[in-house]
Protein backbone atom coordinates (compact mmCIF):
# COMPACT_ATOMS: atom_id res chain seq x y z
CA UNK A 1 0.00 0.00 0.00
CA UNK A 2 1.60 3.28 -1.06
CA UNK A 3 2.32 5.67 1.74
CA UNK A 4 -0.13 8.64 1.69
CA UNK A 5 1.35 12.03 1.01
CA UNK A 6 1.61 14.45 3.95
CA UNK A 7 -0.91 16.73 2.23
CA UNK A 8 -3.54 13.97 2.09
CA UNK A 9 -2.99 13.19 5.73
CA UNK A 10 -3.02 16.84 6.78
CA UNK A 11 -6.36 17.43 5.04
CA UNK A 12 -7.86 14.37 6.73
CA UNK A 13 -6.53 15.44 10.11
CA UNK A 14 -8.05 18.88 9.66
CA UNK A 15 -11.44 17.36 8.84
CA UNK A 16 -11.18 14.96 11.75
CA UNK A 17 -10.34 17.82 14.10
CA UNK A 18 -13.63 19.41 13.08
CA UNK A 19 -15.41 16.28 14.28
CA UNK A 20 -15.57 14.34 11.02
CA UNK A 21 -15.32 10.72 12.15
CA UNK A 22 -15.22 9.47 8.54
CA UNK A 23 -11.99 11.39 8.02
CA UNK A 24 -10.59 9.81 11.16
CA UNK A 25 -11.62 6.38 9.87
CA UNK A 26 -9.66 7.16 6.72
CA UNK A 27 -6.62 7.99 8.84
CA UNK A 28 -7.04 4.68 10.64
CA UNK A 29 -7.13 2.96 7.25
CA UNK A 30 -3.97 4.74 6.11
CA UNK A 31 -1.88 4.29 9.22
CA UNK A 32 -3.54 1.32 10.92
CA UNK A 33 -1.23 -1.38 9.61
CA UNK A 34 1.94 0.55 10.40
CA UNK A 35 0.74 1.27 13.92
CA UNK A 36 -0.36 -2.33 14.41
CA UNK A 37 2.98 -3.76 13.33
CA UNK A 38 4.82 -1.23 15.46
CA UNK A 39 2.70 -2.23 18.44
CA UNK A 40 3.64 -5.86 17.81
CA UNK A 41 7.31 -4.90 17.80
CA UNK A 42 7.00 -2.88 20.98
CA UNK A 43 4.78 -5.30 22.91
CA UNK A 44 6.00 -8.70 21.70
CA UNK A 45 2.56 -9.96 22.60
CA UNK A 46 -0.38 -10.02 20.23
CA UNK A 47 -3.10 -9.44 22.80
CA UNK A 48 -1.21 -6.61 24.44
CA UNK A 49 -0.54 -5.11 21.01
CA UNK A 50 -4.27 -5.22 20.20
CA UNK A 51 -5.09 -3.36 23.40
CA UNK A 52 -2.26 -0.92 22.80
CA UNK A 53 -3.46 -0.08 19.29
CA UNK A 54 -7.07 0.33 20.43
CA UNK A 55 -6.04 2.58 23.30
CA UNK A 56 -3.72 4.63 21.10
CA UNK A 57 -6.37 5.29 18.44
CA UNK A 58 -8.92 6.17 21.10
CA UNK A 59 -6.51 8.56 22.78
CA UNK A 60 -5.63 10.10 19.42
CA UNK A 61 -9.33 10.65 18.70
CA UNK A 62 -10.02 12.19 22.09
CA UNK A 63 -6.93 14.40 21.98
CA UNK A 64 -7.09 15.33 18.31
CA UNK A 65 -7.53 19.01 19.17
CA UNK A 66 -4.06 18.94 20.74
CA UNK A 67 -2.35 18.06 17.45
CA UNK A 68 -0.92 21.34 16.17
CA UNK A 69 0.77 20.17 12.96
CA UNK A 70 4.31 20.87 14.15
CA UNK A 71 5.23 17.28 13.25
CA UNK A 72 3.75 14.63 10.98
CA UNK A 73 0.49 13.15 12.24
CA UNK A 74 2.07 9.68 12.24
CA UNK A 75 4.90 10.96 14.45
CA UNK A 76 2.36 12.40 16.88
CA UNK A 77 0.59 9.06 16.82
CA UNK A 78 3.82 7.20 17.58
CA UNK A 79 4.27 9.49 20.59
CA UNK A 80 0.89 8.32 21.87
CA UNK A 81 1.82 4.72 21.13
CA UNK A 82 5.03 5.06 23.13
CA UNK A 83 3.26 6.77 26.01
CA UNK A 84 0.53 4.12 26.15
CA UNK A 85 3.13 1.37 25.92
CA UNK A 86 5.06 2.79 28.87
CA UNK A 87 1.83 2.89 30.86
CA UNK A 88 1.12 -0.70 29.88
CA UNK A 89 4.58 -1.85 30.96
CA UNK A 90 4.20 -0.05 34.29
CA UNK A 91 0.73 -1.51 34.72
CA UNK A 92 1.69 -5.08 34.00
CA UNK A 93 5.23 -4.74 35.44
CA UNK A 94 6.27 -7.36 32.97
CA UNK A 95 9.34 -7.43 30.81
CA UNK A 96 8.58 -7.44 27.10
CA UNK A 97 8.95 -10.75 25.40
CA UNK A 98 12.03 -11.11 23.30
CA UNK A 99 10.78 -12.48 20.03
CA UNK A 100 8.61 -11.15 17.29
CA UNK A 101 5.41 -13.19 17.17
CA UNK A 102 5.92 -15.81 14.54
CA UNK A 103 2.95 -17.69 13.11
CA UNK A 104 5.29 -20.57 12.25
CA UNK A 105 6.06 -21.16 15.91
CA UNK A 106 4.53 -24.30 17.30
CA UNK A 107 3.65 -25.62 13.88
CA UNK A 108 6.00 -28.09 12.24
CA UNK A 109 6.25 -27.65 8.50
CA UNK A 110 5.04 -30.58 6.48
CA UNK A 111 8.17 -31.95 4.77
CA UNK A 112 6.20 -33.25 1.86
CA UNK A 113 4.52 -29.93 1.26
CA UNK A 114 6.89 -27.27 -0.08
CA UNK A 115 6.04 -23.74 0.88
CA UNK A 116 4.30 -22.07 -2.01
CA UNK A 117 5.99 -19.25 -3.87
CA UNK A 118 9.24 -19.64 -1.99
CA UNK A 119 12.20 -21.55 -3.35
CA UNK A 120 14.63 -23.34 -1.10
CA UNK A 121 17.28 -20.63 -1.29
CA UNK A 122 14.78 -17.97 -0.33
CA UNK A 123 13.45 -20.06 2.56
CA UNK A 124 17.00 -20.52 3.77
CA UNK A 125 17.66 -16.80 3.55
CA UNK A 126 14.46 -16.18 5.44
CA UNK A 127 15.43 -18.60 8.22
CA UNK A 128 18.99 -17.32 8.52
CA UNK A 129 17.93 -13.69 8.68
CA UNK A 130 15.25 -14.38 11.26
CA UNK A 131 17.78 -16.22 13.36
CA UNK A 132 20.28 -13.39 13.01
CA UNK A 133 17.57 -10.93 13.89
CA UNK A 134 16.81 -12.81 17.09
CA UNK A 135 20.50 -12.65 18.02
CA UNK A 136 20.65 -8.86 17.70
CA UNK A 137 20.63 -6.62 20.77
CA UNK A 138 17.09 -5.43 21.50
CA UNK A 139 17.64 -1.75 20.53
CA UNK A 140 19.05 -2.67 17.11
CA UNK A 141 16.38 -5.25 16.47
CA UNK A 142 13.61 -2.85 17.40
CA UNK A 143 14.89 -0.28 14.94
CA UNK A 144 15.16 -2.82 12.13
CA UNK A 145 11.71 -4.22 12.80
CA UNK A 146 10.10 -0.81 13.11
CA UNK A 147 11.71 0.34 9.86
CA UNK A 148 11.22 -2.70 7.66
CA UNK A 149 8.50 -4.79 9.32
CA UNK A 150 6.34 -1.86 10.45
CA UNK A 151 7.41 0.59 7.71
CA UNK A 152 7.85 3.41 10.23
CA UNK A 153 9.67 6.60 9.29
CA UNK A 154 12.87 7.83 10.90
CA UNK A 155 11.02 10.49 12.92
CA UNK A 156 8.37 7.96 13.98
CA UNK A 157 10.99 5.52 15.25
CA UNK A 158 12.87 8.24 17.10
CA UNK A 159 9.66 9.21 18.89
CA UNK A 160 8.58 5.62 19.53
CA UNK A 161 11.93 4.73 21.07
CA UNK A 162 12.53 8.16 22.61
CA UNK A 163 16.01 8.62 21.16
CA UNK A 164 17.65 11.00 18.66
CA UNK A 165 17.38 10.28 14.94
CA UNK A 166 21.18 9.88 14.77
CA UNK A 167 20.98 7.07 17.29
CA UNK A 168 18.24 5.40 15.26
CA UNK A 169 20.41 5.55 12.12
CA UNK A 170 23.40 4.18 13.99
CA UNK A 171 21.39 1.28 15.42
CA UNK A 172 19.98 0.49 12.01
CA UNK A 173 23.46 0.44 10.47
CA UNK A 174 24.95 -1.81 13.14
CA UNK A 175 21.98 -4.16 13.08
CA UNK A 176 21.87 -4.38 9.32
CA UNK A 177 25.63 -4.92 9.11
CA UNK A 178 25.26 -7.97 11.35
CA UNK A 179 22.44 -9.30 9.19
CA UNK A 180 24.56 -8.78 6.07
CA UNK A 181 27.41 -10.70 7.63
CA UNK A 182 25.08 -13.53 8.66
CA UNK A 183 23.81 -13.75 5.11
CA UNK A 184 27.36 -13.84 3.83
CA UNK A 185 28.22 -16.74 6.11
CA UNK A 186 25.81 -18.93 4.20
CA UNK A 187 27.02 -17.46 0.95
CA UNK A 188 23.54 -16.27 0.17
CA UNK A 189 23.14 -14.77 -3.18
CA UNK A 190 21.49 -11.45 -3.58
CA UNK A 191 18.33 -11.35 -5.66
CA UNK A 192 20.10 -9.83 -8.64
CA UNK A 193 22.65 -12.65 -8.58
CA UNK A 194 25.21 -10.56 -10.37
CA UNK A 195 27.18 -9.35 -7.42
CA UNK A 196 30.13 -10.93 -5.86
CA UNK A 197 30.27 -11.36 -2.13
CA UNK A 198 33.09 -10.38 0.15
Amino acid sequence: MPRPTPNDTAALVQQAQQGNSRAFEELVQQLGDRLWRSALVMCRDEHAARDLVQESWLEAWKGLHRFDGRCQFSTWLYGILRHRNLKRIRRTARKPLLLLPDPDDGRKPDPGQPMPSMDFERQEAHAVLKEALRALPEPQRQVLELRFFADATLADIAVALDCPEGTVKSRLHHGLRKLRKSSQCLNLRAPRGESETR
Binding site: V53, R147, F149, L188, A190, P191
Partner: peptide, 21 residues
Amino acid sequence: DLAESAAGVLAALPAPAAPVI
Protein backbone atom coordinates in the same frame (compact mmCIF):
# COMPACT_ATOMS: atom_id res chain seq x y z
CA ASP B 1 22.16 -6.14 -2.42
CA LEU B 2 22.50 -8.03 0.84
CA ALA B 3 21.13 -5.07 2.79
CA GLU B 4 18.20 -4.81 0.39
CA SER B 5 17.58 -8.57 0.72
CA ALA B 6 17.59 -8.38 4.49
CA ALA B 7 15.22 -5.45 4.38
CA GLY B 8 12.95 -7.36 2.01
CA VAL B 9 12.88 -10.43 4.25
CA LEU B 10 12.05 -8.30 7.29
CA ALA B 11 9.30 -6.50 5.42
CA ALA B 12 7.85 -9.83 4.33
CA LEU B 13 7.64 -11.24 7.85
CA PRO B 14 4.03 -12.24 8.42
CA ALA B 15 1.94 -10.35 10.94
CA PRO B 16 -1.40 -11.28 12.47
CA ALA B 17 -4.37 -9.42 11.06
CA ALA B 18 -4.66 -5.92 12.42
CA PRO B 19 -7.52 -5.34 14.85
CA VAL B 20 -10.59 -3.53 13.57
CA ILE B 21 -10.80 -0.03 14.98
